[in-house]
Simulated assay, not measured.
Amino acid sequence: MRVGVVGAGAMGGAIAAMLERAGNEVWVAARGEHLTAIRRDGLKLDGAWGEYTARVSAAKTLPLKAKPELVIIATKAMDAEAAARDNARAIGDAPTVVLQNGLGGMERVAEQLPGSPIVGALSMIAASYVAPGHVRVTTAANTVLGAFRGTQDADAAELAASALNAAGMPAEVIADFEGAQWTKLIVNQVNALPAITGLSVQEVISHAGLRRIMTASMREAVRVGLARGVRFAAFNGLTHARLSFVARAPLSLGQMLPLRIRAYLGATPNPGSTLQSIRRGRRSEIDFLNGAVVAAAQGTEVPVPVNTELLRLVHEVETSGRHLPVRRVIDRVTAATGPLR
């Protein structure tokens, strides 16, 4: 199969390499030093799925001659719309998978690709951009896909799942994709504090004070979802009942959720996608993570002071380029929210 991957960073690069290893003809759209390295040396993959150097075709955008049978857009959420627009002619009417965190990605891409079946994808794979041309899978996991609309999109979702499974990346199609998006949005609450402090996700969760803040942000997000009538889909051991319990339970019991995530991630330090963006001097997708919670809270009676302050602190670090000491982060959040209970 001819597959185009737009955004060959940590996640997109790992997927591109795995698909090429499985015998697919893979074209990737990348930029800067990453593009130069891929063209020169191939796309190097290591970590949980083994070591491999994929010989993929690479350019700034997918060329018209690629004529892909399947496209995967794996950019950051804020770049998805432009990526779809810039590659629209090459994509044509090819089925297109939108692999992103947060909310709203499929809708933005669908506007730019009216002739393409659109599929949403959520992945629990943890991957890191190591260096130009080099990505690492730190946690191997599953991916869920869901049709955006209609029968054609459902067929495209099955096609994408089949391609990923054949490449050794467990994938399944689920009916309640919106519920899964909200479940993943809760998991993505792990991103803000590593971005602010410069610590790994595991280090943040291991620190009692930071773990309490993370738990509080997760509880806010769950409460917003419940207030909006969301039914959280079962995803990687998280269920509607379990998340609803976290929203109601005392903060001390709610910490079971980040502790569960720490155990799932294992010992290899995971920086989280937001911290990786900041380390590379790029804008993060925090507006589509904690920012999505703040936006979704509008029109409800759910207060979200923790998410609001974390959003503010990530933007501060993005602007200054300097991480904040742990004690200062705890003090800033406490000053903005009051004692966490």
Rank of each mutant, 00 (worst) to 15 (best):
V144R: 02
I278R: 03
M218K: 03
N307R: 04
T53H: 01
F235H: 13
S57A: 07
V294A: 02
Q202G: 15
V294K: 05
G266M: 14
A58P: 05
G23Q: 11
A247G: 06
V304Y: 11
R2C: 10
S206K: 04
L324A: 05
G209T: 04
V333T: 09
L310D: 04
K65N: 01
I330T: 01
E301T: 10
E220M: 06
A167Q: 03
E158K: 14
V304R: 07
L122E: 02
R219V: 13
D79R: 12
L185T: 11
Y129N: 00
R332I: 06
R89S: 10
N191C: 09
Q189K: 06
G272M: 06
R40V: 01
A88L: 07
D331S: 15
A336H: 08
A175K: 01
P68C: 03
G13Q: 12
L311I: 10
W27V: 00
G198K: 06
Q255E: 13
R2H: 09
P305K: 08
R279T: 11
A180E: 04
P114G: 12
G4I: 11
S123Y: 02
V144N: 01
G209M: 02
M18V: 02
R223V: 00
K65G: 06
G23W: 09
V317F: 11
G102H: 09
L159V: 09
L164A: 10
M78K: 14
E309R: 15
A121F: 10
D331Q: 15
A80D: 12
R55Y: 02
G229I: 13
K67W: 08
S200M: 13
P325V: 11
D79E: 15
A195V: 03
V56N: 00
R219T: 10
G168F: 07
P269Y: 12
K60H: 05
A30M: 05
I38V: 07
E203G: 12
V98K: 05
L289A: 08
L210W: 03
E69H: 06
S273I: 15
A147W: 00
G146F: 15
L62R: 06
A131D: 13
F232Q: 01
V135C: 02
Q152A: 15
Q276Y: 06
D46M: 13
E25V: 11
I213N: 04
A88I: 14
V98E: 06
